[in-house]
Design a binder for these strands. Structure first.
Lengths: 252, 252
DNA sequence: GCGTTCTATGTATGGCATACGCTGTTCTGC
DNA sequence: GCAGAACAGCGTATGCCATACATAGAACGC
């Protein structure tokens, strides 16, 4: 089966620049990149909820329906925005860099991308990665695991595990920060309030494990806790991968 | 600081039944539970996108605006729906059950809940868990880790790591299945098509790690691959936790 | 029996994505 | 140099949506 006749979704062809310009009609007054950039500008300023076709069109000084000459539907615009916002993947694994630091760098870059463009987390995932930047991130993630003895599908599962963790963690922290900001609260105070709320709700009833946790306390500022929690989860995952790799390298 | 005067969000008080009935005016014709149940019915039948206030009201034979006597806003309705749909947490860790099988059961129950009510994954997370079922799930997750030597915050981070993985994985599989169904494709074919699409896009350009993966192939039916991938990620995480616990139990 | 307080609901506001069709521009083929 | 096809931009219309606000009437305390 030849690869040439594999059909690609319209928005993917758009993103990779595989659509030839028609040539016939009047000159286009915009480019797809401009439309995507305008969408990003709106999301950056007022959040993803503010990204409506009419708002983006307004940003470009153009009628709402004109955008549909550049993008098949709003969901495609969002996909293109997300792919663009992820930007370049981190530097590839260096010649003397182990898989573990390389993968840790890749994971942190995932978090940084979402923290840089918090609206990304709200873009609905529309299938496996096919956008140009998504594919380049995938390439760098897989590259970090070359020569580890992991099978292909295991390398794939590994980077999905790591990027999923990064996405979850970034989403969680951004959600909490935004919720605190919405109530004009310090993130630290919001965290403390949560523990008080949980304590009140579990005062009556059988929640021994939660009460044990509350008694023990969760000292430290939110910032410290957040960094520590990120490291904690990442180290657990990397340790787990290392167990497998060691088992592979030194055959039983 | 006393717990008694901690303010709780209105929807949380609603969910825990902490709101006293007013008593004065006309009898209410519905209960909050009925409203939530109607919302779930709609989501179950036609997906979360079909859950509009008017649709839910119609389901109950009531005017749209009547719902706002039972629920402060749509987002609260969605939160309540999700908490209800999660239902009972899995059985608590048995007296002779190790932390690892208990946590694995808990993780799988998370996946099962989302597979049972796929729309749950689309309900925006509105902060840390405070709903009655969410708190009970939290309790069981933490309980699985009692006596492991992990610190309180570590137990918390651990269950967040595991539930995050479960949620990611369940979301991914449901998304892929729904995308395939939308195009009336067999999930296996949709998977195969993805690899062909990726192969075509990476034909030109520097994607050595991806091409290595493609050459090696990803044999096996989607079902097999999915189950294997779930196990793979979970075992990595549990292995990583085990490394830490062993280090704690046997002091250096 | 009366005032208060609550329920249910009708209406209105200000959004939203996008289907469709019209007008006028630009290029191709002759 | 010109006819006609193909296309860009956009006005209009449809059918949604959440929810603010005001009103009418029901149930209760007194």
């Amino acid at each position: 089966m030849s690869d040439a006749d594999v059909e690609l979704p319209e928005s993917i062809e758009l993103a990779w620049g595989l659509r030839e310009r028609p040539g016939k009609g009047p000159r286009r007054s915009l480019t797809m990149r401009q439309v995507v950039a305008a969408g990003i500008r709106v999301a950056e300023t007022d959040g993803l909820a503010a990204v409506s076709m009419s708002r983006v069109a307004g940003e470009l000084g153009v009628a709402t329906m004109s955008l549909y000459r550049y993008v098949p539907a709003k969901s495609d615009l969002l996909d293109l925005m997300a792919d663009t916002a992820y930007g370049d993947p981190p530097a590839p694994r260096g010649p003397h860099e182990g898989w573990r630091p390389a993968l840790a760098r890749w994971a942190l870059a995932n978090v940084a991308a979402i923290h840089r463009h918090p609206w990304i987390r709200q873009v609905p995932i529309g299938g496996p990665p096919l956008g140009p930047n998504q594919v380049r991130w995938m390439e760098q993630g897989l590259a970090a695991l070359r020569g580890t003895g992991l099978r292909g599908i295991e390398r794939l599962s590994t980077i999905m595990l790591v990027s999923g963790y990064a996405r979850n963690w970034a989403t969680l922290t951004v959600d909490l920060d935004e919720a605190a900001a919405r109530e004009q609260l310090d993130p630290d105070d919001a965290g403390a309030r949560y523990w008080h709320q949980l304590a009140r709700l579990t005062r009556h009833g059988a929640y021994p494990a939660i009460r044990e946790l509350l008694v023990e306390g969760t000292e430290g500022s939110e910032d410290e806790v957040f960094d520590t929690e990120w490291e904690f989860g990442l180290e657990r995952i990397l340790d787990g991968i290392e167990v497998l790799i060691r088992g592979r390298t030194a055959p039983d």
